[in-house]
């Protein structure tokens, strides 16, 4: 199977994230991920997209872009936002380290990045060309173990 790509452009509004979550769940089911892994993929993408909406976009019309790539070995999702004046640096390594260091189970916020780290096989954050953030999440396909 060669790498195939799906692109979604979604308004930067949490109203639309439930639809994105349902879509990736159905795609993951088609790719024969286990039920547990599908829940992981859906939660990771929910957290990534929520961060993109709250931290990475100045208004709903600026939108977030999802590039979803599938091949025999993996499902890769890249979520891109366009940045927000004044807080473009939320995804710098220093800022991420600070967020992780301050995370506490009793905190109301700051758990999203930790969950993304727990739920993905690989993830990375980098500043994109328009000053926003690209968050990449990779989930490896292992058909031998995907029988749940």
């Amino acid at each position: 199977m060669k790498k195939e790509r799906i692109e979604l452009n979604v308004p930067s509004d949490v109203f639309y994230l439930e639809s994105v979550r349902v879509f990736i769940g159905k795609l993951s089911e088609t790719l024969r991920f286990s039920k547990k892994r599908i829940a992981d993929i859906q939660l990771a993408l929910d957290e990534i997209c929520t961060n993109a909406v709250y931290h990475g976009s100045s208004c709903a019309s600026s939108g977030i872009q999802l590039q979803i790539s599938v091949d025999t070995s993996s499902l890769e999702i890249v979520v891109s936002d366009k940045g927000r004046e004044g807080i473009q640096d939320w995804s710098t390594s220093e800022k991420l380290a600070e967020i992780q260091a301050n995370r506490s189970p009793t905190s109301e916020r700051g758990h999203g990045l930790y969950l993304i780290d727990c739920l993905t096989d690989v993830h990375k954050l980098q500043t994109n060309a328009v000053g926003g953030t690209d968050v990449t999440a990779i989930f490896y396909r292992d058909v031998q173990q995907e029988n749940g």
Binding site: L43, T50, E108
Partner: peptide
């Protein structure tokens, strides 16, 4: 069937 960290934090 699903909850994210925003809801847990709430």
């Amino acid at each position: 069937g699903h909850i994210n960290s925003t809801a847990v934090g709430t």
